[in-house]
């Protein structure tokens, strides 16, 4: 379905010196940028660029689970909706979920269900929305990585962030983080997601052809990369809250505007105010 005319079949995805078409070595990640707290309406959000991927993740919740018959009386549901915008891919994609999006939504929901403290919020739902705005392979890893940041931004209690990355095989070589052309013409792709602190693998998929040894190599590449990604996620969250503190300082020290309305007579003193609850 992707246009394939522009890559001649003879072209090597990785040359004898170990350099790939985009200049990376076999174990190099594409550049990643993450920003937390980018949307106003969502409870938590994150924007992430990963190579040419652009994804936006938002979290609403915990909120009342609808429809009511889906509510779990003992815990929160974790529901993820992964969606690709029509203009995100080379051939326009019809709006709405297709089977691939539904499957990705499911595996990502399951990845988070084991880290979120769902027992703290019975009968609610934690709704995660991942929107792929521009796609260049590895979108589920990018989406999951962004969604992790959005969950933390929303204050959802979790055991840890979840970091996600894929490795595969191109031109017979096990390589990290395949881009679109590499994924289309390579021999295997294996996305995974990990709880960095404990090493638990919460998402794992694979398609293509790998020997058991190659699989080990791929996992080693991905797990090491996940550590770098984890730091980027944490840094995005720390920056968000430091930036917020600075902005507030600027605001407080700005000159107040000149008086507009004439001073009115202050209203009568109010009746009994409710007791203010002291901070705990």
């Amino acid at each position: 379905m992707e246009d394939i005319e522009h890559i001649p079949k003879e072209l090597q995805l990785i040359d004898k010196k170990g350099i790939r078409l985009d200049g990376r070595r076999f174990n190099e990640l594409r550049p990643i940028k993450i920003e937390a707290g980018v949307l106003k309406k969502a409870d938590g959000s994150a924007y992430l660029e990963w190579g040419n991927n652009k994804v936006l993740a938002a979290v609403y919740g915990p909120r009342e689970a609808h429809p009511r018959h889906l509510q779990d009386p003992a815990k929160a549901l974790v529901q993820c909706r992964y969606n690709m915008a029509p203009f995100s891919v080379t051939e326009r994609k019809r709006p709405g979920p297709d089977r691939r999006s539904v499957e990705i939504s499911k595996v990502i929901s399951e990845a988070f269900a084991s880290v979120v403290f769902v027992e703290q919020f019975p009968r609610t739902s934690v709704d995660i929305y991942i929107e792929v705005l521009q796609a260049d392979a590895g979108t589920r890893c990018a989406g999951l990585t962004a969604a992790s940041v959005a969950l933390a931004d929303a204050g959802i209690p979790m055991r840890d962030l979840v970091s996600s990355c894929a490795s595969g095989k191109i031109g017979g070589v096990v390589a990290l983080d395949l881009n679109k052309d590499e994924d289309n013409f390579g021999e295997a792709d294996c996305p995974m997601a990990i709880v960095p602190r404990t090493g638990e693998i919460v998402l794992l998929q694979m398609d293509g052809h790998l020997t058991a040894h190659e699989f080990d190599q791929a996992m080693e590449l991905s797990i090491n990369a996940a550590k770098q990604i984890y730091e980027l996620q944490r840094d995005a969250l720390r920056r968000r809250y430091a930036a917020v503190a600075e902005a507030a300082e600027q605001e407080a020290l700005r000159e107040p505007p000149p008086q507009e309305a004439p001073r009115e007579t202050p209203p009568d003193m109010p009746e009994d105010l409710p007791p203010e609850v002291d901070d705990l």
Partner: peptide, 30 residues
């Protein structure tokens, strides 16, 4: 609720507090 000027300043201060981070000194700023 109050007079226009009072409400303006109170709302402004409330927004500053809402946007504030964990650093101390907020009361001094306000």
């Amino acid at each position: 609720d109050g007079d226009a000027e009072g409400v303006y300043h109170a709302a402004h201060v409330i927004k500053v507090i809402d946007d504030s981070g964990p650093a101390p000194g907020l009361t001094d700023q306000v």
